[in-house]
Nucleic acid binder design. Structure first.
Length: 463
RNA sequence: GGCGGCGUGGCCGAGUGGUUUAGGCAGGGGCCUGCAAAGCCCCGUACGGCGGUUCGAUUCCGCCCGCCGCCUCCA
């Protein structure tokens, strides 16, 4: 059984399922007002691997991730660029999907947009007011946090210390500085929806409660996002559910930041690298490998150097696929690997992989096992134990597939006429033991950007 | 001020009270190869500092130093 760190308890504990065999997951998505960066990418990869692994373990997964398509940042950008909010949101939502697809991330089963749920959000806010948990001011409707049992569960702080530390601007109308907005009353020029509290728009924290409960139902299994969402976003989502008397997420997962030097990557520091930038300089699989080489909760740094490092490690994985001609690709496109694939993994390697993954998604440990198997496959191959070697190599391929990395047995690059001719000439020279000529041709091929290797079948080229 | 995390060999990054090593990348030696490349084998004897607990601590406790995050929109 998968054991995961749970932010609510601060411990690693089994992920208990509401319905045996079925896992329901909600991950907070993005506010679509700018290009996604590699910090967002890390988050997608973490959840992607979680989903793939659960599938591999024979569970049915329902994964929901929302699109926040109305919020302050979108309004600001639209105003600055003289466009409509929906235009801005649509542009960056498209960019989000493009980046996520490029990373090989499976699309969510549902990706609800906030604007499609406003009616339900209004109803939820009205219910909170009716139940006495929310109150209206001249600027909006607020949740009275002091009335909520256990507020501060995820922040791991008492209400008193949260109040003491509150740095929010003083709003005399709010009953407590910690109270948060559920409904923002309309300001001139902003998009608005009708509500019993007047025209306005929903607060950020309300959409995720409404959408997660609507799509996954009460008491769904797992809710997560980046560490920053722990507080206040997730705390506030939970507060609303508690106030409504509804069972909310049973387990909370939060992943660590991507750092740039000593600082976290963020929009305000202007130090972010977009997913597109990253993919321009490294294989998406190398980026994935780099992310998975660290535990999901730790902070990581992604630099050109560490990307190149991961690229070389990836090259070794592909090298295994080349040697053992692992052409039977694993389909990572739309389908995660199912449990049936476990049968293709040799038992010791499967056991080692599972024990690491079950231990709070210890992908570094899982990868250590994979690379260990890789070395042994080569060693067995060197000793002529072809069948055993192939079985191990296939195990490596399948387990990489579970992590969303597909190995390449050969480069897709077609040989141009000139290179093909040089290969033929070189093989001819070598067969005649004309090594001066064969080396000269190798130099020419190298100059053309090829990596030249001699194998049983003669000269082979790759990039 | 409150809460939390981290400091491991050249770099990245796991882990553990002592007996066998995480793993990757880079580096050195060897094997293989016409020479290479790829691959295999071997190697560095690492755990921020000071105390304490212990027969024994990198691994537990305390203190100190350094770094980071959250407490505000943020993945």
């Amino acid at each position: 059984m998968l054991r995961l760190h749970d932010t609510a308890t601060g411990t690693v504990r089994p992920l208990e399922l509401r319905d045996p065999g079925h896992v329901s997951i909600y991950a907070c998505g993005l506010t679509v007002y700018d290009l996604p960066h590699i910090g967002h990418g890390r988050g997608w990869l973490v959840f992607d691997v979680l989903r793939r692994y659960l599938r591999f373990r024979g569970l049915e997964v329902r994964y929901v991730s929302n699109v926040t398509d109305i919020d302050d940042q979108i309004i600001e950008r639209a105003a600055a660029e003289g466009r409509s909010e929906s235009e801005v949101a649509r542009q960056f939502e498209d960019a989000w999907w493009e980046a996520s697809d490029a990373l090989g991330v499976l699309r969510p089963d549902d990706a609800p947009r906030a604007t499609e749920y406003v009616e339900q959000m209004v109803a939820l806010v009205a219910e909170l007011v009716e139940r006495g948990f929310a109150y209206e001011t001249s600027t909006g409707v607020y949740l009275s946090v002091e009335k909520v049992d256990g507020y501060g569960l995820l922040a791991h702080q008492s209400l008193a210390s949260l109040k003491a530390g509150a740095r929010v601007e003083i709003d005399a109308e709010k009953r407590s500085p910690v109270d948060f907005v559920l409904w923002k009353k309309a300001k001139p020029g902003e998009p608005t929806w009708e509500s019993p509290f007047g025209p306005g728009r929903p607060g950020w924290h309300t959409e995720c409660v409404v959408m997660s409960l609507d799509l996954l139902g009460e008491g769904f299994d797992l809710h997560g996002g980046g560490v920053d969402l722990m507080f206040p976003h997730h705390e506030n989502e939970r507060a609303q559910a508690v106030a409504l008397g509804r069972k909310f997420a049973q387990h909370w997962i939060h992943y660590g930041w991507v750092m740039v030097g000593a600082d976290k990557m963020s929009k305000s520091l202007h130090n972010f690298v977009t997913v597109a930038d990253q993919l321009a300089r490294s294989d998406p699989r190398a980026y994935r490998l780099l992310v998975l080489r660290s535990q999901y909760r730790s902070q990581i740094e992604i630099t050109p150097e560490t990307s190149a490092d991961a690229g070389r490690a990836l090259e070794r994985l592909d090298g295994l696929a080349r040697r053992f001609e692992l052409h039977q690709a694993v389909d990572l496109q739309r389908e995660a690997l199912g449990a049936d694939m476990a049968a293709e993994v040799t038992p010791p390697e499967l056991e080692r992989f599972v024990s690491h993954m079950d231990d709070d998604l210890d992908t570094p440990g899982a990868l250590a096992g994979i690379f260990d198997a890789l070395s042994r496959a080569h060693a067995l191959g060197d000793r002529g134990k072809t069948d055993e070697a192939r079985a191990l190599a296939r195990s490596v391929q399948v387990l990489c597939g579970v992590l969303g990395i597909s190995l390449r047995a050969r480069d897709e690059l077609p040989l141009d006429a000139q290179s093909a001719r040089l290969v033929a000439e070189r093989d001819d020279a070598r067969s005649r033991h004309d090594y001066a000529r064969s080396d000269a041709i190798r130099d020419r091929l190298t100059a053309l950007g090829w990596i030249v290797e001699d194998g049983p079948a003669g000269t082979t080229l790759r990039r």
